[in-house]
Amino acid sequence: MIKEKISGKAYILGDDIDTDQIIPAQYLTYNPANAEERKMFGKYALIGVPEGKQGLPGGRTPFVTDGAMQSEFKVVIGGKNFGCGSSREHAPLAIREAGVEIVIAEFYARIFFRNCVNGGYLIPYESKDRLSEIIKTGEEVEVDIKHNLLRNHTTGKVYELKPLGDILPIIEAGDVFKYAKKSGIIG
C-alpha cells in the first residue's frame, strides 16, 4: 500500500540534475547492500550540486547540512531531464536514504526513472507546470497521491501532477520483485 499523502519542506533544483550531482563517483565505494554503508548515501545525497544551484534561487542551501545523515527536506522538485547520466542506482537510493520518498520533475532520464520505480525508492511524479520556478526551497508542500495534486501550504496554491500511469502497479506493489510475484511472472 502506498501512502495517500506525503508532506514536508520542498527542495528545489534546476534542469539536467545528473547522477554525478546526486551522488558523486567517489562515494560509490560504499556498498548499498551493507546496512551501515547504505546510510552514507543519505549523508552525501545531492552533495555534487554546485554552489549557486543548491536549492536555487540563491543557490546556497545544502540538501543535507554538514554532519547530518538525513535531509530536513521531504519533497525534491527538479526541472527537466532529472537524473540524467549514469545508471547508478545509488542515485535514487541516496535521495531516499536522505529521508525523501517523492520527487517531482518535468520529466526524467530513463534509467533513473526505472531505478526509482523498480527499486521502490522514490515515487517519480511528472509535473505539468515548471514547479522548479514556482515553488521555493523551504516552502511547506503536500503531495496528494490519490488525486495527483501538489498543495503549497505556504502560498495556498494547488498544482496538478501527471498521473503515474504504467508504473502505478509497480509502485503500488512496492518494487519490481513484488510486482512480478503479484502478477505471476516469478514464483
Binding site: 531505478n115 527499486g119 516469478i186
Partner: peptide, 19 residues
Amino acid sequence: GIGNTDAGFVLGTGKTWLK
C-alpha cells in the same frame, strides 16, 4: 544500461520489462 534492482532481477530470472 540498467540499475542494480533490474540487474538483480535478471540474475534470478533472465528477464526484464522494457518499454
